[in-house]
Design a protein around this nucleic acid. Sequence first.
DNA 1: AATGAATGAGCCTTCATTCAT
DNA 2: GATGAATGAAGGCTCATTCAT
Lengths: 236, 236, 236, 236
Amino acid sequence: MANSLGKTANPPRMRDFGNSTHEESNDTHSRILRAAGPVFAARGYSGATVREICSSAEVNVASVGYHFGDKLGLYRQVIHDLRVARAKRFPAPNTDRQQPEETLHALVHTLLSRMLTVEESAWETELLMREMQNPTPIFESIVEDFFRPLFDQLLETLRLLVKEELPDHQLQHLAFSTVGQCLYYRVGAEAIRVLIPESERQLHYEIGSLSQHITTVMLAACKNVSRLPAPRENRD
Amino acid sequence: MANSLGKTANPPRMRDFGNSTHEESNDTHSRILRAAGPVFAARGYSGATVREICSSAEVNVASVGYHFGDKLGLYRQVIHDLRVARAKRFPAPNTDRQQPEETLHALVHTLLSRMLTVEESAWETELLMREMQNPTPIFESIVEDFFRPLFDQLLETLRLLVKEELPDHQLQHLAFSTVGQCLYYRVGAEAIRVLIPESERQLHYEIGSLSQHITTVMLAACKNVSRLPAPRENRD
Amino acid sequence: MANSLGKTANPPRMRDFGNSTHEESNDTHSRILRAAGPVFAARGYSGATVREICSSAEVNVASVGYHFGDKLGLYRQVIHDLRVARAKRFPAPNTDRQQPEETLHALVHTLLSRMLTVEESAWETELLMREMQNPTPIFESIVEDFFRPLFDQLLETLRLLVKEELPDHQLQHLAFSTVGQCLYYRVGAEAIRVLIPESERQLHYEIGSLSQHITTVMLAACKNVSRLPAPRENRD
Amino acid sequence: MANSLGKTANPPRMRDFGNSTHEESNDTHSRILRAAGPVFAARGYSGATVREICSSAEVNVASVGYHFGDKLGLYRQVIHDLRVARAKRFPAPNTDRQQPEETLHALVHTLLSRMLTVEESAWETELLMREMQNPTPIFESIVEDFFRPLFDQLLETLRLLVKEELPDHQLQHLAFSTVGQCLYYRVGAEAIRVLIPESERQLHYEIGSLSQHITTVMLAACKNVSRLPAPRENRD
DNA sequence: AATGAATGAGCCTTCATTCAT
DNA sequence: GATGAATGAAGGCTCATTCAT
């Protein structure tokens, strides 16, 4: 019964004491964790195989069973560590002394960067995307810890930009409009790849242009938006 | 060679005569199709097993081979039928005699309806979402059949709404802004569930309000957008 | 129990009455038989599939069961018909009034032609080759009816060519030497394809050259062979 | 991708240290190999099933995947070991200090021995015969490893025996004549069994007599053969 | 702690055969 | 007689897991 619901053979102790993170150490435990993230991100949970992870980590297949009980146990640990890592890496951006227009642009740029960056930690975003579709209990805490601050900041910035005072839900919609436009360039990336020819994509789809565009859209929206009457069903 | 690229053993004739769809008939062919959709949606293409589908349909495992060549052939047929069904349920709005503003609203409303409808066939949207994240060999045709028509209609509508003539890529960005905002209410549903309290969600997040909001944003954007200078890297 | 050991569902009568052969008629029974030969020859018994045969014959898969009980029943009938057909097609060549050298050449040429001919009935030879490796009871009768006459004629021709009277077994060895050389260009065809480059094969491996060569070898052997002493074990 | 073209999961090290062969050891690896040969020989490559092999070896079915990648990988290894074993059992005759006549005799004797030996490892020859009729993807390497060396040696020996210098293709034909005669006593064994009475067969068909006879034929042929004019179609 | 080997369940597919019309 | 459909038994292979050292 050494599966992810029970305990492992010889329960390996949690190692996050002090500042010794997996990033630095090089023992089997850490190497598996480092290798597992990208593989889970690239193939999804069920698509990833223990063998590929272990092969990438250059450890024995049986190690996963020993250190994490089973595949699911490893996955859980990866997700857990990811949350910790991102909380540390992306503190809420300090934008106190900017014009709200600049702040908006900065926030959009930040969002797009996190989405589209293709560097060594791109797998983290990919994994979070997968979590959005198949949320596990961990997802909620990710939203709270990592997404809520940015969201709140976005709300406040938008509040400064609209010409009249708006009820919360209208500001929220504006915030989601902002986030949705950014997110689409990741979620819809495959669709865009089909819809837009390669040549155009290379010219007009880098982060700079996109954040410019989205900021423009939202600024226009803020200038034009007005308090709506009580919600009513439109043609539905 | 009776795989999904060729023909099935004895190619079973298409049954879509008249308006009698698989939904109603009860032969093996239809039962497999009815069972397959939800399973593919719930587990993804590779996660779904022919056995589960056949077990759910109460037919022999080999039936899939006989009727659809192989698993992928079945999947293709599921997607194909899905396209037909959705085109019937959410027809592209007739734009001929409308003001472009109304057309935009109608398009947004259609998009949101497709995304958010949670009736007996919620699996349909779920399936398309999975394709976006884990594209199968069939993805390209899905985009062409499902997305391209609406996307083109959106482009033309936006072209009528902007005040000056814009290059293609700027119109495309406006279109993606529209689609992205709609899509977010599905992709980000779990995040929204965490960020926004239940009470507010029930009041302000039904399709009517959302389409109103998104249309407003895009109309404002169209009024304000202007031809950009040649693309250059902005702060990236 | 409608397998090849019992009777078929409605025992289909043997159709070889009169001169109505399968070659001419066009009913399902005959079409299956005509299609089966080449397929069995090309793929071997177990490699051949009932579906391919029926597809090639343009009849329903179930027909084999009806007409021949099962796959093995069909195979048996194919082999049986093959024997009949070859007996009719290859009567013992008349070589009475030739010089023995010419007769030898003619016999070698005949052997090679039967082996290497790639016309519509090439499958028959291929099937016989397969029978040689996995002989069924039918094989013996094939040898007697179809191969023995040629062998005897070969023996007599060789008897005329050797300079002194030889015991039977030495003549038999000479005959087998002749046959073996011919047979090799079929049995060893794949090996030859690997050993000899395409260009050379096209120049020097047509039936004319080969029969010339083999005849030369055997004539030389006949001129030089002499009665051996009683057999004794050489280094074995 | 642990198929026969790549590496096995954890590539099991080659075990041919010293002179300890699989014949003696008793681990899973060796037991599969020992069981596989006869099964492949008896049923052919495609007729043999991994399950039968593993059942015969009394190991788990998945072991084949682990140790050899896949069925073809196992087959390759069987063939490889077979080559080693046969090279040891029937070494190519050392030709350095012999008269070419003796070399020819030795070569013929080796060929016949390889064909006709019916000891505990009769399956080896059977396997090679099957490859000739139903070549697997591995056939080419078999020819190169098994046949080519002897073939080349045969060519050189014949070159020394002919009285004038001959073009390559004529020497090749002489070599094929030699091989063909030897091969016939195996390929045509069933036919011979029918044509020649048991009593004679026991007296005159042992390896010694046959190699004597074939050598005689080929020596006569070598003495008599002469450079042919450019190839032209003879009566075909 | 770690490893190579082994295991059994399960997957997709293919096939000869049988059923019902 | 003939047909389309259906069936169950394998077949090769993959995978997470476990065993023995």
